[in-house]
């Protein structure tokens, strides 16, 4: 047969449609601009913006695993917050062991201590993710109602186990020497740790995008999100892929837990459950299953929370709910609805 019989059809959406497609990306700078107008003072605005980005990126780290897990197997883990808490407690325990490193003036030793804490925490939460998936999630695949209930039960048990292992009190750890204090940029003070958090968040987002776009595993995950059955029909075991993603997501939640803990310097067994509220809002805003949407949603929520915390502290959480409502009225499936076959 010849080329003539099958005319190549280049289906490019009209310009206007493509603009709307890209619109969510514009939302972040737009919100930042609005923030500048509302806050007025550029120095304060810069401080708030960096804080907002840091918070947003930490939430992104914690939320990304949840959203991919949902996309791949239609599983929503209400116990995801447990990994955040456990990660924080394990990380803090390591930091206490390495007290000599964290209190030393050496930047290298400080960062090594944080690195070790993150590593051990991620390892612990990945293993916990393995156990959680096998024991709690696997028996209830495909049954949403039971899934919600059982993973909630897992959260309760995990929180109680934190009490058993670490006692009922909250835990305090000061940030390592070199991560305390702020840089002064003109009139604005920017906390050092927030910049580190932004750095880690950006690196992680870039890495995640690379993995999803350019590795075979990433391709499989994206294919699986769209049509898991077809991935199986091509000869891949989606269940095993899912377990890996679940563990990775849990490890990321653990990482987020350490970072959030260092940000607050105080952690409780309930912290994960509290952060999950923001995580859910972010995941809903972004579109369940979409990593890009999750990223933009997280930045929006981070920025908005910090601006409103400055302008009207009492309505910070309510403002994020408002954001969610507005976004859902505009796009009922979130910013980037995930296309599902079937």
């Amino acid at each position: 047969m010849s080329e003539a019989t099958i005319k190549p059809r280049i289906e490019k959406a009209p310009l206007g449609e493509r603009m709307i497609e890209k619109l969510p990306v514009v939302l972040v700078p737009a919100l930042a601009m609005l923030g500048l107008i509302a806050v007025g003072n550029p120095a304060t605005w810069l401080t708030l913006t960096v804080a907002g980005l840091a918070m947003g990126l930490m939430i992104f780290i914690m939320a990304s695993g949840l959203t991919v897990v949902f996309g791949l197997m239609d599983v929503i883990n209400f116990g995801h917050g447990a990994f955040i808490s456990v990660g924080a407690f394990v990380g803090f325990t390591v930091l206490i062991w390495l007290g000599g490193w964290t209190s030393s003036p050496s930047v290298f030793l400080n960062l090594s201590a944080v690195f070790m804490a993150i590593l051990v925490a991620m390892l612990a939460t990945a293993l916990m993710g393995y156990a959680f998936e096998r024991v709690i999630v696997m028996p209830v695949y495909g049954e949403h109602l039971k899934q919600i209930l059982v993973t909630m039960g897992g959260l309760i048990v995990a929180q109680q186990l934190i009490y058993v292992f670490w006692g009922p009190d909250e835990m305090h750890v000061a940030r390592p020497e070199s991560l305390q204090g702020s840089f002064v940029l003109g009139e604005a003070a920017v906390e050092k740790y927030r910049l580190v958090a932004v750095g880690i968040g950006v690196v992680l987002f870039v890495a995640m995008r690379y993995v999803l776009k350019s590795t075979r595993i990433g391709l499989l995950v994206r294919a699986g999100v769209e049509n898991g059955e077809m991935v199986e029909a091509l000869g891949y075991r989606v269940r095993r892929l899912f377990l890996m993603v679940f563990m990775a997501g849990s490890a990321l939640a653990g990482l987020g837990g350490v970072m959030w803990g260092l940000y607050q310097e105080t952690i409780t067994a309930h912290m994960g459950q509290e952060i999950m509220v923001l995580v859910f809002i972010v995941v809903i805003i972004g579109g369940l299953g979409s990593v890009e949407g999750c990223f933009i949603g997280a930045l929006l929520v981070g920025l908005l929370s910090n601006y409103t915390a400055f302008l009207a502290p009492k309505v910070a959480l309510v403002s994020t709910i408002g954001l969610m409502v507005i976004i859902l009225m505009w796009r009922p499936q979130g910013l980037y609805p995930v296309v599902k076959a079937k």
């Binding site: 209400f78 899934q147 919600i148 509220v277 859910f280 809903i284 369940l288 959480l317 009922p332 499936q333």
Partner: peptide, 17 residues
């Protein structure tokens, strides 16, 4: 209108707020 999961998440967020 959407899934059970969605309602669960929205109610969790709204109730916390």
């Amino acid at each position: 209108r959407v899934k059970a999961i969605f309602f669960a998440m929205v109610t969790l967020a709204v109730a916390s707020a």
